[in-house]
């Protein structure tokens, strides 16, 4: 009983520190800014497509099927371009096949809705933007106490060190969860305001699989947007937790916050380069950055490197998080505080 109370107090302290540093204000500002920009961009592109359609068909009627067909036409024209490479051809073919599937099964993939935006935003944000928000939360969780030298009052209490670090980890988990929820809520609200359509009950197809470079729709299932959103955001939460764990370790290892942010950010960016330029190198797929795009597996037309799958990536990320936490705790317990 007493033990639980103490841990509760410790976690509350750590959450309080994060809140009083006004980090959530920064995170909220970034979220609102970026989501507004993207929503506006998507609305703009959609309206352009729509007016092009109206110009070509000279009918003012609104019909997503013709719009989808127009998109197929655009894609087919791109296929004939002499500059396109093998991979490009494959992914365009897959897109065309998907669009055809949607038209045949009467699933509207074109009109932007809040629910769809919220998911597509994550597809893009999960490799860089979401990790960035988590880094803002986590980078100074230990290193900040070192550079402000407040670690001395923190570690001269009658509390074993592992409990201190554990409370910090728990506070990070709570705040990461909150950030992921905020991303979902804010992107839904803002894009909903832009598009004027929510689309929660639209069906979503998931489970497309690549078999020998072509799309196999025999595994395709149709689920509702809401359950799909929950799935996507659960994966996002998992990625956030992994990034938080890795950042926590870096924060323990370095002496100041600037280094912690620098190291994690450059790892993220470097990792993107790595998978872009060295995707043939077998080790790349065991690097955590290469495995962040969990949500893209759901649509089926994604396979960054041969042999990668959702399960594979989840396991790789899980191992990275576990090892990071083990290293972080070990170093924190052994550390001589000399600041």
């Amino acid at each position: 009983m007493r033990v639980g109370e103490l841990m509760h107090a410790l976690i509350r302290n750590e959450v309080l520190k994060i809140l009083l540093k006004k980090k959530m204000v920064l995170i909220l500002t970034l979220l609102i800014l970026f989501i507004s920009l993207f929503s506006y961009g998507q609305k703009y592109v959609y309206e352009q497509n729509l007016s092009r359609l109206e110009a070509s068909t000279s009918s003012a009627g609104y019909d997503w099927k013709s719009l989808a067909k127009q998109q197929i036409g655009d894609l087919e024209r791109r296929l004939n371009s002499p500059y396109i490479d093998e991979e490009g051809i494959n992914s365009i073919n897959i897109e065309i096949e998907q669009l055809n599937y949607f038209i045949e099964n009467d699933i509207n993939p074109v009109t932007p809705t809040a629910a769809r935006f919220t998911v597509e935003f994550i597809d893009q944000a999960i490799i860089m933007f979401i990790p960035l928000l988590i880094i803002i939360l986590a980078a100074d969780i230990v290193s900040g106490e070192l550079s402000n030298r407040t670690i001395k009052v923190l570690l001269t209490r009658a509390i074993p060190r592992w409990k201190i670090l554990f409370s910090k980890l728990m506070a990070l988990m709570i705040m990461s969860t909150l950030v992921v929820l905020l991303v979902a809520i804010i992107s839904t609200l803002i894009s909903g305001m832009f598009f004027g359509r929510w689309g929660f009950n639209e069906p979503v197809t998931t489970g497309f699989r690549l078999v020998n470079g072509s799309l196999n729709s025999s595994y395709v299932r149709t689920v509702s947007r809401v359950s799909y959103m929950i799935l996507v955001y659960s994966l996002t939460w998992f990625v956030s937790v992994v990034i938080a764990s890795i950042t926590l370790m870096i924060s323990v290892l370095v002496q100041n916050t600037a280094s912690a942010i620098g190291i994690v950010m450059s790892t993220l960016i470097g990792g993107q380069f790595l998978q872009f330029f060295l995707s043939d190198w077998v080790l790349v797929k065991y690097f955590f950055v290469s495995n962040l795009s969990l949500t893209k597996y759901l649509t089926g037309n994604y396979q960054q490197i041969e042999g990668m799958s959702l399960i594979f990536s989840v396991i790789v990320l899980g191992v990275w998080a576990a090892v990071s936490l083990a290293v972080g705790f070990y170093v924190f317990l052994k550390k001589d505080i000399l600041v």
């Binding site: 009083l20 001269t156 009658a158 509390i159 074993p160």
Partner: peptide, 19 residues
């Protein structure tokens, strides 16, 4: 550790607290 530390109060090299 816990029992020993519960009897100790300290200021080590400057009173660094949360600004």
């Amino acid at each position: 550790y816990v029992k020993a530390m519960s009897k100790v109060g300290a200021i080590i090299e400057g009173p660094d607290l949360y600004d």
